[in-house]
Computed example of a mutant assay.
Amino acid sequence: MTKNHQIVLDNRPKGEATAANFKLVETDIAPLQDGQVLVRHHYLSLDPYMRGRMNDSKSYAASQPLGEVMIGGTVGEVVESRHPDYAAGDQVVGMGGWQNYSVVTATQPGVLRKVDTTHVPLSAYLGAVGMPGVTAYYGLVHIIDPKPGQTVTVTAASGAVGSAYAALAKARGCRVVGIAGGPDKCRYAVEELGFDACLDYREYNQDTYALAKALKEACPDGIDGHFENVGGWIMDAVMLRANAFSRMAVCGMIAGYDGQPLSMANPALILINRMRVEGFIVSEHMQVWPAALKELGSLVASGKLRARESVAEGLSAAPEAFLGMLKGQNFGKQLVKLV
């Protein structure tokens, strides 16, 4: 019987999350039943939304149960199958969680999907050609809906969502301006991801008006569309430069994940600028995934989207890598390599 190692949520954070909230356990893998597939995970995805799930509070999804494997996207290889559509050796993407193996009941729709790694690396199906890429696609295409020549912005510009957003927006003829933390990330955004400009928010010491002034220089025609991952004072600065009838897609509020209040300095700008501000959860829009994945796969295969990855080694490294990502210590998509 194969042994499995898992990381479970042992207790809930009180304020900032710590490694002590997690626990590494060993379990046995039971024999497969009809319709089940055993997957060995090669990579585990770490994403900001997981921090919100750790809290026992009202949200768009149920809280992560205590004592159960932490939620998370995975890619890997089928090692055993009792389902006719899957065979040993198939490469797949799913939501296997923070563990080395998962037993998937493949008769349930949408829980497992085979992927082609001929032109797209397996790990990319957790980033640019996965949930983060589709998140960028939905926010840009279906909420912001930019026209050629318009200016769009995004926070966390060098991350998995931001990098896909830039490629998608440039393909639509937009001027794309990012906001990221640190000169290396901003340099990467401009030189490798194709951003027209990128501002290092750390230079402005949480001075909303100083950042807004810099945005005025980077966006001389104002901001027509914005993709928000962070919230707080940075979002306030963007709103000061937003044009009339601008659109904002709100995907994350990472500045408030540890329980800090997230005030909005100038909510009247929503009215004054007749802004459309819309929050969304990408898993609620599965109808767009096929078109999004097709375009994102083409961008990666053609080299127009060269998203960087930060890779931690081994399952036991997942908690510290996750906590580091929440503090912006990662560079690009944060992964854990398991094989």
Rank of each mutant, 00 (worst) to 15 (best):
E309K: 02
P290F: 06
A307K: 01
M264C: 13
S283Q: 15
I281A: 09
M275T: 15
I270L: 11
L293Y: 01
R308D: 07
R308E: 08
M264V: 14
K304F: 14
N273S: 12
E295C: 13
L299H: 01
I281G: 11
W289L: 09
P267S: 06
L296Q: 05
R276L: 10
V300G: 00
M275R: 10
R274P: 12
E278Q: 15
E309Q: 09
A312H: 11
V311W: 09
L293R: 00
K304E: 14
I272E: 10
A301S: 12
R306S: 10
E295T: 11
R306V: 06
M286Q: 15
L269T: 07
M275K: 02
A265T: 07
W289S: 05
P267L: 08
I270S: 08
I270Y: 08
P267D: 05
L269N: 02
A307L: 07
E278C: 12
A312E: 15
G279A: 10
S302D: 07
F280R: 11
S302G: 00
N273D: 09
M286E: 15
A301D: 05
A292H: 02
P290N: 06
W289F: 14
A312C: 11
P290Q: 05
L269W: 01
L271D: 03
L305A: 00
S310K: 01
Q287M: 13
K294A: 12
E295G: 05
I272G: 04
E284Q: 14
R306M: 09
L293K: 03
E309R: 02
F280C: 15
A301W: 00
A301Q: 02
E284R: 11
R276W: 11
G303K: 02
A291M: 08
E284F: 08
V300P: 00
I270C: 10
E284S: 13
I272R: 06
V288H: 03
M275W: 05
P290W: 04
M286H: 04
M286K: 14
H285L: 10
A307W: 03
A291P: 00
S283I: 00
A291F: 01
A312F: 01
L293F: 02
E278K: 04
G279F: 04
P267N: 06
N273V: 03
H285N: 13
M275S: 08
P267I: 02
M286L: 11
